[in-house]
Amino acid sequence: MLGKVLKHELRATSHTMLPLIGGMLLVALMGNVCVRLGNGRDLPAAVSLIITLVMVLFFVGIFAIGFVTVYMMVRRFRDNLLRDEGYIMHTLPVSVHAQIWSKVLVSALWYALTAVTIAAAAVLLTFGADTVKIIGDLFKTLYDVFTQGDGHIAEILVEFLAVLVLASLALSLSFDAALSVGHAFAKHKMAASVAVFIGFVVLEEILLATLGNLSMDTLENVGRLEPMDLIGGWRAYCAWTAGMILLEGGLSYAVTAYFLKRRLNLE
């Protein structure tokens, strides 16, 4: 059933996300035209004003699209599982786990596509005769860098991206958990959700600090705390960060599943 829920989740989110992404790319294209128009030319005031407005729209859009995507995904979870649509969704012959995973995986997909859109918009804005050559040179340089030094740079990038993906999944789950707990209250559900989210962040910091201190103490006690080389340090850092993210994500998942299953409070 997860496949079916994913299919409908993608369909439901596409009708808001595709126009957003399309709009961003269109603004970038318009920005490109504006850059070419304004390049060293003396233009009438009205045209200059339009060019300025398009450029402002582009830069505001680049900064806003990430926040808008997160907002859309949080709102989707709330509206689809915790408000009226919940009467339809929670009476489907689908487990709570499939419902949560569909939301988390589709959110992660849109976060990734938003990141790609931002990069594509930047390329579109500056696209010109030399762009293909510049991008080609960039990839060549990246290839050279990745194939040097025993492949460590490629490893660092892959591990960094893996941690980033895990972090985006865990962030989605934190929002979902806070909303699920907040909406179990009889009144002021959104205010309660925000308060719960802040509570989660505080608890998470305490847990991180406690586990960090415990780990260091344990390593010192068993005499394993030795100086590492750069790549060894990076690997240890990635492993620690991934572990903490998985712990945070796992706890958020458990809280979300419990509240959707046992403490659902649809109005």
Binding site: A12, N80, D84, E85, G86, Y87, I88
Partner: peptide, 8 residues
């Protein structure tokens, strides 16, 4: 059938 209209 819920008591209110719940369809997206």
């Amino acid at each position: 059938l819920p008591e209110r209209s719940c369809l997206p």
